[in-house]
C-alpha cells in the first residue's frame, strides 16, 4: 500500500498524512420533492390537508348545498338538525349549516391576513431593531409596552376606537400580535449577525442591504413561518372572542363568534347552535397548530434527522 507523497516530509510530531481519497468522495445526493417532504413529516401533511379542506369549504361555500346565510325564516326558528337544516336553524330561522360555512371565510381570512400582516410588520421592526443600534432599545421598549397589555384587551380597546368591520378586526389583532413576531425576528437577526458566514460576507465586500437580503432574511423565514401559524391560530380565536362579546365582526356578517354569541342564550336547550361553529373553530385551530408544530420540527436544524 502506498501513501501519496504530496506533503512535505517535515510534519509536526503527532501528525500523519492520510490518503486524500476519503475526504474527496462526495456523499450521495438525495433528492426529495414536496411529496417526499410530506411523507417524512406526517404532522405537516395532516394539518396542511385539514386546513386546505377548510379553506376549500370557505371558498366554495355557495356550491355546498347552502342557502343565503342571512335569509330569515321566522316560521322555522330553532329547528333541530334535519334534512332541511343540516346543523339546525337559529333564533331567526337562519340555516346554521350555511352560516357556519360562510363563517369559515371570516375566520380564515382574519387568521391568514393577521398572520401575513403581523409577520411582515414584525419582520420589518425586528430587522431594524436587530441592525440599527440606537433604534433597538426604543423599538423594543415600545414592544414591551404593547406586550404588557393582554392581546384581547388591546384588541377590544382598539375596536372601541373604530367601527366594527372585518378590516378593523384584522388591524386590531395585527397590532396586538406584532410584538411577538418582532421579538422573535430581532433575536434571530442578532444571532445570525454573529455567524461567521456573515463576517465572511462582510470581508468579501458585500454591502449591508445585500447582507440582509442574502444572508439574514432567508434564515429568518423558517422560524417566522412557524410563528405565523401560531399567530394565525390565535388570531382566529381572538376574532371569535371579539365577535362573541360583540366587539368584533358586525352581527350582520356570519362569523363563528357571532353565531355562538347568538346561540349563547339557548345553550342549554338548543346546544347545536353553539356546538357546530365551536367544533369548526376547534378543528381549524387544531389544523393550523398541527401544521405549525410539524413545520417547527421539520425546519429546526437541531432536529435535522433528514440531513
Amino acid at each position: 500500500m502506498t501513501v501519496s507523497a504530496t506533503s512535505t516530509a517535515s510534519l509536526p510530531p503527532g501528525l500523519v498524512v492520510a490518503p486524500q481519497l476519503p475526504d474527496l468522495l462526495l456523499p450521495v445526493k438525495v433528492r426529495r420533492g414536496v411529496l417526499g417532504f410530506l411523507r417524512s413529516h406526517p404532522t405537516v401533511a395532516f394539518g396542511g390537508a385539514l386546513l386546505l379542506c377548510l379553506v376549500l369549504v370557505g371558498i366554495f361555500a355557495p356550491f355546498l348545498g347552502t342557502v343565503d346565510p342571512t335569509a330569515l325564516a321566522p316560521a322555522k326558528r330553532t329547528r333541530a338538525p334535519s334534512a332541511d337544516f343540516w346543523f339546525g336553524s337559529d333564533l331567526l330561522g337562519r340555516d346554521i349549516y350555511s352560516r357556519v360555512l360562510y363563517g369559515a371565510r371570516i375566520s380564515l381570512s382574519v387568521g391568514l391576513s393577521v398572520a401575513l400582516l403581523a409577520s411582515l410588520a414584525g419582520l420589518a421592526i425586528g430587522l431594524i431593531a436587530g441592525f440599527v443600534r440606537w433604534a433597538d432599545s426604543i423599538l423594543m421598549r415600545v414592544m414591551d409596552g404593547l406586550m404588557s397589555i393582554p392581546p384581547i384587551l388591546l384588541a377590544i380597546a382598539l375596536m372601541a376606537l373604530t367601527r366594527g368591520s372585518v378590516g378593523n378586526v384584522i388591524l386590531a389583532i395585527t397590532i396586538a400580535e406584532i410584538p411577538r413576531v418582532s421579538r422573535l425576528v430581532r433575536g434571530v437577526v442578532l444571532s445570525l449577525r454573529e455567524q461567521p458566514y456573515v463576517d465572511a460576507a462582510i470581508a468579501s465586500g458585500t454591502r449591508t442591504p445585500m447582507i440582509i437580503l442574502r444572508h439574514i432574511l432567508p434564515n429568518t423565514l423558517a422560524p417566522m413561518l412557524v410563528q405565523a401559524t401560531y399567530i394565525c391560530a390565535s388570531a382566529m380565536i381572538v376574532e371569535s372572542i371579539l365577535s362573541f362579546i360583540g366587539a368584533g365582526t358586525p352581527p350582520t356578517i356570519p362569523s363563528w363568534g357571532n353565531i355562538m354569541a347568538e346561540g349563547r342564550a339557548l345553550w342549554q336547550v338548543k346546544p347545536y347552535i353553539v356546538f357546530f361553529p365551536a367544533a369548526f373553530l376547534s378543528v381549524t385551530v387544531l389544523a393550523v397548530n398541527l401544521l405549525g408544530d410539524g413545520l417547527r420540527d421539520a425546519l429546526d436544524p437541531r432536529m435535522a434527522k433528514n440531513l
Binding site: Q195, P196, D199
Partner: peptide, 13 residues
C-alpha cells in the same frame, strides 16, 4: 480575506 474555524457556521446553509 478570512478562513474561519467552524466549517459548519462559516458557510451560509
Amino acid at each position: 480575506q478570512v478562513v474561519f474555524q467552524d466549517p459548519y457556521s462559516s458557510l451560509n446553509p
